[in-house]
């Protein structure tokens, strides 16, 4: 009995030290994604009044694993240089809010209790990886891949690829077009307006 306790303790210590040493991108991703799904499934949020709170909870989990700094930088590409320090910070925050609103709404509206299936991880380099997942649905499945970057020993998502379409690249082409005509402040303003718009639509539909 005593031996087995000891053995378990040793195993636990070894196990934890092993996992700390070789942090795998897929393992880092799995926790927060599954936690977000648990929040989505939680019946206590069924009431529409709780919707905002649910969104904030999901976002706080997502922010642990998504690097909105990297996402913003890459969505702006070369245009990132047109933004001064303060504009960069504002952009990053507003873009995160915008993505949170837009995609949370979509996911909440169409979520039917699906689970995410983690398929594989590909290490592209020491600091870059691609984690492939899929979401099985009634009559099809949606492939969802995460591009991840290791920063200070922690894997973070910097792009999501839905059915072969990179979200970051999609926004980059749009921002490039807009910033060809408008200033960074105007772009940030556009984004704020869209958030307000969506909030109002939400109120009408709920």
């Amino acid at each position: 009995m005593r031996y087995s306790v000891l053995a378990t303790a040793i195993l636990l210590i070894m196990g934890s030290s092993l996992s700390a040493e070789a942090a795998e991108p897929m393992d880092d991703l799995r926790g927060p994604i599954e936690q977000a799904i648990r929040i989505l499934k939680d019946p206590k949020y069924n009431d529409l009044v709780m919707k905002d709170q649910q969104r904030m909870e999901v976002m706080s989990v997502i922010k642990k694993i998504f690097s909105f700094n990297e996402i913003s930088k890459r969505a702006l590409g070369r245009n990132w240089r047109k933004f001064n320090l303060q504009q960069r910070q504002v952009f990053e925050k507003t873009f995160a809010d915008f993505l949170g609103y837009t995609y949370f709404k979509k996911i909440r509206d169409s979520y039917q209790g699906e689970n995410v299936i983690f398929l594989s991880q590909e290490k592209i380099s020491d600091i870059k990886a691609l984690v492939k997942t899929k979401i099985p649905r009634k009559n099809n499945e949606i492939p969802l891949d995460y591009r991840m970057l290791r920063k200070k020993g922690k894997w973070q998502v910097y792009d999501v690829i839905i059915e072969g379409v990179s979200l970051v690249k999609n926004y980059r082409t749009q921002f490039k077009k807009i910033l060809g005509k408008e200033s960074p402040d105007q772009l940030i303003d556009r984004m704020r307006k869209k958030i307000v718009e969506q909030r109002e639509q939400d109120k009408i539909s709920s």
């Binding site: 379409v165 082409t173 749009q174 556009r190």
Partner: peptide, 22 residues
């Protein structure tokens, strides 16, 4: 459309990306 700042460009890029990946 809701997620886009420029729906025309978003759909164009989305189509081309999806086709390229296929």
């Amino acid at each position: 459309k809701e997620a886009a700042f420029d729906p025309y460009e978003s759909i164009r890029d989305g189509y081309l990306q999806r086709r390229a990946s296929k």
